[in-house]
Design a binder for these strands. Structure first.
Lengths: 121, 121
DNA sequence: CGGCTATATTCCTCGATGATTATAAAGGAG
DNA sequence: CTCCTTTATAATCATCGAGGAATATAGCCG
């Protein structure tokens, strides 16, 4: 049998995933994909209140997914862990595969109905 | 500028990530990696109360990550989306990279202290 | 049918989290 | 210094999710 990862490792993984598991934060990461932006720019892209976006940014920073530096009045945020995009791509791939499978299942079910082969309730 | 993914897509991604973002569920997925198991077996591996594990299993099922079928009294669960392991691997890779980077930073800081080059308070 | 086992579900509590509002802090302009 | 802009941080409230205890459901055996 395979050894279980330690609780500590599992919690760290879960923490990163928790930080990712929010639509607003995913949107923020997405707009940062093309390069660093200051908070007001991010605000313009993702909408919502300034305080809310700022908090989401701090969550991402605590999780080590973004970093930031100050330039005068502005604070610029950037992706500090490119791995997030691989993760998102994986999730998207999974979703895509699942949808394809569902569609196939539906198509099969319909063809069975046409030939009268399926469960004939 | 890149187009933003729709809110719907972002929420679906976030939902999958939320289902993943829990140590107990990660452990369950891990023990299922080698093949299907019934609930009592899973219980033996991951610990906790039966009701709790059962609830975590239902979360994973709702998220489409696992599937199950009944055999007599037992219900066997299996991974229904291999993508989860790619995701976990990505997260682990990111964490590893980050730790390596931290260690490097520390090593550099120490060598600077040795040579007296760093911020000399 | 009644008991027994395996699993699911419901109810509850409690701590975590998200959104909003108001306020604080940092830094530039005058 | 005061005023303004940008960002961060409380304070608050509502909601959510995890865990435990009790109960319900499903299927076997007698």
């Amino acid at each position: 049998m395979r050894a279980l990862p330690s609780d500590e490792v599992l919690e760290k993984i879960a923490d990163v995933l928790k930080a990712l598991a929010d639509p607003t934060r995913l949107r923020i990461l997405h707009v940062l994909q093309d390069g660093e932006l200051c908070v007001s720019d991010i605000l313009g892209h993702v909408g919502g209140s300034q305080a809310n976006v700022s908090k989401h940014l701090s969550v991402l920073k605590r999780a080590g997914l973004v970093g930031c530096h100050r330039e005068g009045l502005n604070v610029f945020y950037h992706i500090s862990d490119d791995g997030v995009f691989a993760i998102c791509r994986n999730v998207c791939d999974s979703l895509q595969i699942r949808l394809d499978r569902e569609r196939e299942t539906l198509a099969e079910a319909r063809s069975r109905m046409d030939t009268g082969t399926g469960s004939p309730d």
